[in-house]
Write a protein that binds this DNA or RNA. Structure first.
Length: 445
RNA sequence: GUGGCCAUAGCUCAGUUGGUUAGAGUGCCAGAUUGUGGCUCUGGAGGUCGAGGGUUCGAAUCCCUCUGGCCACCCCA
């Protein structure tokens, strides 16, 4: 309530959510890594021109949502509103596409859009994503879509719906646009106010008018305007989806807000997010992007998925028994009774070192608080085991190993504390191989 | 960016036509119980009533501005 607060549209990600958050990203890193996507880090701050040219000057993102500032050298810089332009720029500038084709890259991190904040819509939000650069194959469109869907599945998320569409080539798209305007123009007088305004700004939106569906039904359809090559590209993507059992909906109204998209575009929606902000993520092909940034032509396809919304959905749906069990620490070492703090600390920190060394997290509490309070504190941190050190334990070089859930407790000599802890946590006996596996998998279990 | 609703303890919220010292539940701390947790009882701490200005003898309450949140539009993550 008092003190300095976060800025508008920004927020802190606090535990236990932050633990869950980190796992989501770790899971994406691991999965995309298994598909052969290597990590890339690009600057959060980029030349404004990168986005105005790459993303497209007519888009909402560039027109009204950019976080732009001038640095001390008078340069116009912008906090990235999305990552694709940066990643493609970085890859082509370094000629990565001449070493391997396609270049498979993954990223995660914050993006910025100066929008009006709302639930599920923040000025700083995080995305995980991949870009597959250098080949035009529809099989790569499929690869990227399948990867996104597998990621959601691995997060235990159900109720998603994959929406796909084809925008065709740049030329086909432009032709369709003028065709649509020509179709609607004679009817301007009969259209709602929103649509009259949209006609030249974003004619594709007219098809989605909620006031009057009559005109939209007879309107020319983009799918019908695609040339044989574009059509075959799209059909191949759909064949792959069907073949591999990925459910999808073709949605001729799906457009995407960034200029660089062509051919396959897709979004992943979730049933619990209503109308306004129902997109968990999206992506598509961007064969013309490289040229707009002054590079030789180079096709690509990718996606970006919102971490904020995914976490919100998982939390809402109580699929987060995981989330509630998130551990700040697995083991709490407590001093009990009226004992010398320094002696208690010495014993506790020696045990802690051994436990941490065996791959288990633990924290100490040698404060003067009552045991009741310390045990409650251990529960609040999500600990499953408490180690209690009191007068008797110190004298006998023992520790009381207490399972918090079952409230059972046994006295254990200091030398066997580590194996007792692992037994209590239900782990296999600790050994050299265990720590290696730990490194590869997300924290917690 | 346009329009609307809202802001009181860590959290969820009461607070009468403007009236004296702003409450409850929950959580926190302590005691009952010198060493054992989600119960019970007792006590305690915790508020610039989002911020600033105005009206008034007097403002949490009325007015203005700002900040922040939520909703719709736009658009997306």
């Amino acid at each position: 309530m008092s003190g300095i607060s976060v800025s508008r549209g920004m927020r802190d990600i606090l535990p236990p959510m932050s633990i869950f958050w980190e796992q989501i990203i770790a899971r994406h890193n691991l999965l995309a890594g298994r598909y052969g996507y290597a990590p890339i880090e690009t600057p959060i701050l980029e030349a404004t021109e990168l986005f105005s040219r790459g993303v497209g000057s007519g888009t909402d993102v560039v027109e009204k949502e950019m976080y732009t500032l001038t640095d001390k050298g008078g340069r116009s810089l912008t906090l990235r509103p999305e990552a694709t332009a940066s990643v493609v720029r970085a890859a082509l500038f370094a000629h990565l596409e001449q070493r391997t084709r396609p270049v498979r890259l993954r990223y995660s991190g914050p993006m910025f859009r100066y929008d009006r904040p709302q639930a599920g819509r923040y000025r700083q939000f995080s995305q995980v994503g991949v870009e597959c650069i250098g080949e035009l194959s529809p099989y790569l469109d499929f690869e990227v879509i399948a990867l996104a869907m597998e990621f959601y599945a691995q997060c235990g998320l159900s109720g998603t719906s994959l929406q796909i569409n084809s925008l065709g080539s740049r030329e086909e798209r432009a032709a369709y646009r003028s065709q649509l305007i020509a179709y609607y123009e004679p009817e301007v007088a009969h259209m709602c106010g929103d649509c009259q305004r949209r006609l030249h700004v974003n004619p594709l939106r007219l098809l989605d008018c909620k006031v009057d569906h009559r005109l939209a039904q007879a309107a020319p359809r983009l799918i019908d305007q695609l040339g044989p090559e574009s059509r075959q590209h799209f059909e191949t993507v759909q064949m792959c989806l069907a073949e591999s059992g990925v459910g999808y909906v073709t949605n001729p109204l799906l457009v995407r807000g960034l200029d660089y998209y062509c051919h396959t575009v897709f979004e992943i929606w979730h049933e619990s997010l209503d109308g306004a902000q129902n997109a968990l993520g999206g992506g598509g092909r961007y064969d013309g992007l490289a040229e707009t940034m002054g590079f030789p032509s180079c096709p690509g396809v990718g996606y970006s998925l919102g971490v904020d919304r995914l976490c919100a959905v998982l939390e809402n749906r109580e699929q987060s028994s995981q989330l509630r069990e998130q551990l700040w620490t697995e083991v709490a070492i407590l001093s009990v009774g009226d004992i010398a703090v320094f002696e208690a600390w010495k014993a506790a920190s020696r045990l802690a070192e051994l436990i941490r060394g065996s791959g288990v997290s633990c924290s100490l509490d040698v404060s003067a608080r009552k045991v009741d309070a310390k045990l409650k504190g251990a529960l609040a941190m999500g600990a499953r085991v408490a180690l209690l050190l009191g007068e008797d334990e110190l004298r006998n070089s023992e520790v009381a190993v207490r399972l918090l859930e079952s409230r059972s407790q046994e006295q254990v000599p200091w030398e066997s504390t580590v194996s007792a802890v692992h037994r209590a946590l239900g782990h296999p006996e600790p050994g050299a191989s265990v720590t290696q596996q730990e490194a590869g998998r997300p924290v917690g279990r």
